[in-house]
Design a protein around this nucleic acid. Structure first.
Length: 563
RNA sequence: UGGGGUGUCGCCAAGCGGUAAGGCACUGGAUUUUGAUUCCAGCAUACCUAGGUUCGAAUCCUAGCACCCCAGCCA
């Protein structure tokens, strides 16, 4: 197969850091990473970049990689997301060393908070949300100390204990790290590390806790507790690194993971923020998280993408700190490249036009042999029925063709793929002038061999009208009509949904397919010759009409030309 | 006007002081019973700008410029 995951992974600046650490004997020559999603949505291809990075490094350096759910905010999380994330990581082809939840550490995290208080490095603050914002200052002005900043250790201990016991309402008090209200880095202006959430039912810990740690506090300690050596995250956390280090330093942590930031993936014609993807789902602008138009792993899977192609994509885009927006053509190349190698070929006519072969015995049926893959004999052959009535695609016939048109024209010849050469003798039209049917004649001497004395340039696909099966085809196009809905939206002061592509899904219910497709199984992938790669929808129920999703079209240099 | 980042071909991205990898896209051409695949060729005297150091700079220094992130009791 065409699995690039077996190829050496390209290096990047993070691997260079690890190489240097290994060379200097840091971390006892151990490499431990983790992939830490919050279960508040489905994974998308941006997460795949992080997954391939983290798990790939663990594989290549003979290290470990944990899957850890960063589940510190029960209000936004759900067990459905936990399950989908596990499934998606596995589907991508990775095995975690350990499965953890940040909530596994809630007891330890609480004890560390007690330590912080005893060290005089944390205090309970009674400021309201609004007051807190005022006291924080602005980007250019320093903040000012909270009036509660200098409470005694005993008072802080007592208050924090009562917070834990549920004696105070949500929002009334928080535990804050005591760092520096005048820091030019806003994240260091006494950040909140614990807040009260009394009525949230946590998907893992139930109602055991009514206070929950904040990301900045929980993440570094979780990394530490797992003995992570390299904590890889995206660029927006760069400003948080001093806080990450502060917590571990103050607590004199026995292990201090190194946080390294890389830029997140942006893909043209889609959005990648979980907030926006959630909105698309909730407002039913798409048909759920696994809608094949979504950049989610579940969506790409349903669209027909292979795990190999997504891994390949993640390797090809690289890992840097530069802002980027990757063209869709790269992702398309990855899936075409993989499917070209492994997809069985079939014929499907999307816009059927009836053709009567007038000189072929009307009642005769012939079985022709067609290769399942033109370059791979080991894929075997299948038989296709041929008779006097067939369907070809309307797009393969033109009465007044542009220059260079190689398909069927009145009086012209074309090769039927894996069949005979036919000539169009007569065009039958209805009263409105629409072509209804073509009357053609076939050349019996052209099966498997070229006619002598003349060249037939075109080859078109077809199916027997008497044997064809019907199916529903879902033809997908880009979700948005502009390359960068986020940027365009803020520039034009519009919501990104204003750029949704109204034609991102086209349903074709008239397509006719060769009968061999009847026993396709959900997720089976095919190349419909000259059309594209399709996969049987995972939700096609047994017995119901087949539904195929178009993964991607074939490259089409003819359609691209000006003609 | 604060802090943190980033700037190499249309897009991604190597390069780490010795004279601009690679992939995608694009453009030619060959082969082809998929206008697919495959193959072959082309595609940055140039690295945000301006100075400087050096025999030599995308790489070092200085000063600018542009863009991204940060003022959640989100992650």
């Amino acid at each position: 197969m065409n699995d690039t995951s077996n190829n050496p992974r390209p290096s990047n600046f993070i691997r260079q850091i690890i190489d240097a650490d290994l060379a200097s004997g840091k971390n006892g020559s151990r490499v431990a990473t983790r992939f830490p999603p919050e279960p508040n949505g489905y994974l998308h291809i941006g997460h795949a970049k992080s997954i391939v990075l983290n798990f790939g490094i663990a594989q290549d350096y003979h290290g470990t990689c944990n899957l850890r759910f960063d589940d510190t905010n029960p209000a936004k999380e759900d067990i459905e997301y936990v399950e989908s994330i596990k499934q998606d990581v596995q589907w991508l082809g990775f095995k975690w060393t350990h499965l953890y939840y940040a909530s596994d550490y809630f007891d330890k995290l609480y004890d560390f908070a007690l330590q912080l208080i005893k060290l005089g490095k944390a205090y309970v603050c009674d400021l309201s949300f609004e007051q807190m914002r005022e006291y924080r200052g602005t980007l250019t002005q320093p903040g000012k100390d909270s009036p509660y900043r200098n409470r005694s250790v005993a008072e802080n201990l007592g208050l924090f204990d009562r917070m834990r016991k549920g004696e105070f309402p949500d929002g009334s008090r928080v535990l804050r790290a005591k760092i520096d209200m005048a820091s030019p880095n806003i994240n260091l202006r006494d950040p909140t590390i614990y807040r009260i959430k009394k009525d949230a039912e946590h998907h893992q810990t139930g109602s055991k806790w009514c206070i929950y740690p904040m990301y900045d506090y929980a993440h570094c300690l979780s990394d530490m507790l797992e003995g992570i050596t390299h904590s890889l995250c995206t660029l927006e956390f760069e400003d948080h690194r001093p806080l990450y280090d502060w917590v571990l330093d103050v607590l004199k942590a026995p292990c201090h993971p190194q946080q390294i930031e890389f830029s997140r993936l942006n893909l043209e014609y889609t959005v990648m923020s979980k907030r926006k993807l959630t909105e698309l789902v909730q407002k039913k602008l798409v048909d759920g998280w696994n809608d094949p138009r979504m950049p989610t792993i579940a969506g790409l899977r349903r669209r027909g993408f292979t795990p190999e192609s997504i891994r390949d994509f993640c390797l090809r885009i690289g890992v840097t700190k530069a802002d980027n927006i990757v063209e869709m053509s790269l992702l398309e190349d990855c899936i075409r490249n993989d499917l070209n190698e492994r997809a069985i070929r079939r014929m499907a006519v999307l816009h059927p036009l009836k053709v009567l072969i007038t000189n072929y015995p009307y009642d005769k049926v012939e079985r022709l042999t067609a290769a399942n893959h033109p370059q791979k004999a080991e894929f075997g052959n299948r038989e296709i029925a041929f008779c006097a009535e067939i369907f070809i695609d309307r797009n393969d016939f033109m009465e007044s063709p542009p220059k260079g048109f190689k398909r069927l024209i009145p009086g012209g010849e074309v090769r039927l793929r894996y069949g005979y050469v036919i000539r169009c003798d007569e065009v039958i039209k209805d009263a409105g002038g629409t072509v209804q049917e073509l009357h053609c004649s076939y050349d019996a001497a052209t099966l498997g061999t070229n006619p002598v004395g003349r060249k037939v340039a075109g080859v078109i696909h077809w199916v027997s009208a008497r044997h064809a099966i019907r199916a529903k085809l879902r033809l997908y196009d880009r979700l948005f009509i502009v390359p960068n809905p986020d940027v365009q939206g803020s520039r034009e002061n519009k919501d990104y949904t204003a750029y949704l592509n109204p034609d991102s899904l086209h349903i074709n219910s008239v397509a006719v397919l060769e009968p061999a497709l009847a026993n396709a199984k959900p997720q089976d992938r095919f190349q419909f010759e000259r059309e594209g790669y399709f996969c049987l929808d995972e939700q096609s129920p047994d017995g119901a009409p087949l539904v195929f999703n178009r993964t991607v079209t074939l490259r089409d240099t003819w359609a691209k030309s000006d003609k």
